[in-house]
Structures are given as structure tokens and as C-alpha cells.
Design a binder for these strands. Structure first.
Length: 207
DNA sequence: CCAGTGATTCTCT
DNA sequence: GAGAATCACTGGC
């Protein structure tokens, strides 16, 4: 039993801010999420199960990975019980581990310096590594192979939640905004980003 | 701002 | 089945 089973999808989207998403030797801190609900016109699940969205109806803690615009992969954490069809889209990361590998996958020149020595303020190139749902999948090597797989410490894809009490990683304030790139369901403020602080630097779009 | 991109889904025959 | 519409995006102006 994890938070993915017990909390509402919108709450999970908020809780995931500050969590570490790891795939192999690459990892980043989640700084931007969006919730997609069962009764939500913007959700892939709103018209029922199909070939593409099948894994969105798995039980909480599975990965839903789909191809967007025919070219990019997007990564979601399935929430709620099996058969419901709710998930949280991960939209941006602050890269923290395996940055040389990430830069290479993204086709961005990295000078080879210590991967943990992130330049103060993060340069434009750093920001471009994981500041979007398609970018972070390319950065971490997430592909359709991982669609329907279970997320966990013993799986290729893992998520470590921040310690709310002792960690300075979890953002103190969270801002809820309109979701990006949708045409329906714009009235729902289901996109979550840090309201301020260092993590906010890494989100895909200011507003 | 906007073009490229191609899989998936929708709407008819 | 075929043709059209629709995108939970990115990168380059």
C-alpha cells in the first residue's frame, strides 16, 4: 500500500512535487505535475478504455506511457483503483543524477564537469534538459516499453517521495494553474508547480 | 508565434 | 475500411 492507492489523484499530483523520479542511472526531482481524472474531458480515459490508454486503467502505481503528436513520449503515474482511469502526468524535472547521459540523450552539449555541480541558477542548456513531458522522457530514456510497468524500488522506474518533515526538497507553497496544451477542461486547475523557491526555476512554463 | 509530426480515434460508408 | 480530425509537444522563428 502506497500513497498512490490511498490518496485522491489531485492530492497525489501535489505530493509528487519534490519527489525523485529515477530510471537507471538518471534521475530528477519532479517540479511540475498535472492531474487527469475519470470524469475529466481533458483525460485520455474520458471516453473509456482503448488500445492506447489501456494501462491508464491499471491499478495505482503503474506507469502509463503514451506517444504524443506521433513523436514524443509522455509519462504518467496511474492513481486510484484498477478500472477507474486516473493518472498524474509528470511535466518537468530538475535533473540531479546522470546529467551527462541526460544531456547526450537530449542532444545538448554538456562540458563534462561534475554532474552534481549544477551551475548557480542553472544555465539555459541545463533548463532545456527536462522542462517538458516529452523532454524528460527522452532525458530519462522512458519509452513505450515501460507502458503498463509497475513503478517501485525494484523496478526500472522508481519514485521516491520527499520527507515532508525533514526535507528542504518538498516545496512549501504549491500553485495550481490551468493545464498546458489542452482544449477541454480548462476550468480545472489541475496543474501544480512550486509557488516559489529554487525548484520553480525548472518548470516548463512560468504560467 | 507556428510548422512539423504520425499514431490514434472518430465518423461516416 | 477509408478519410478526416485531433492531439496531455518541441524547437525554431
Amino acid at each position: 500500500m502506497t500513497i498512490f492507492d490511498t490518496a485522491a489523484t489531485v492530492d497525489i499530483a501535489r505530493t509528487l512535487l519534490g519527489a525523485t523520479l529515477r530510471v537507471g542511472k538518471t534521475a530528477g526531482i519532479i517540479v511540475e505535475t498535472e492531474a487527469y481524472l475519470a470524469d475529466d474531458p481533458a483525460s485520455h480515459s474520458c471516453n473509456g478504455r482503448s488500445r492506447r490508454n489501456g494501462s491508464m486503467f491499471l491499478s495505482a502505481g503503474h506507469a502509463y506511457v503514451y506517444r504524443s503528436y506521433g513523436v514524443h513520449w509522455c509519462f504518467n503515474v496511474v492513481t486510484g483503483p484498477a478500472g477507474v482511469g486516473e493518472a498524474v502526468l509528470v511535466r518537468a524535472l530538475k535533473p540531479v543524477d546522470g546529467i551527462a547521459t541526460i544531456a547526450e540523450r537530449r542532444g545538448i552539449v554538456w562540458d563534462g564537469s561534475d554532474a552534481f555541480n549544477i551551475p548557480a541558477g542553472g544555465g539555459a542548456a541545463m533548463k532545456a534538459l527536462c522542462s517538458g513531458p516529452g523532454k524528460l522522457c527522452q532525458a530519462l530514456g522512458i519509452t513505450g516499453d515501460m507502458d503498463g510497468s509497475i513503478i517501485g524500488p525494484d523496478s526500472p522506474v522508481s519514485i521516491t517521495l520527499p520527507d515532508r518533515v525533514t526535507s528542504d526538497r518538498a516545496p512549501a507553497g504549491i500553485l495550481a494553474t490551468e493545464r498546458i496544451g489542452i482544449s477541454k477542461g480548462k476550468d480545472r486547475l489541475y496543474r501544480f508547480v512550486p509557488a516559489d523557491g529554487e525548484l520553480r526555476r525548472w518548470i516548463s512554463r512560468p504560467k
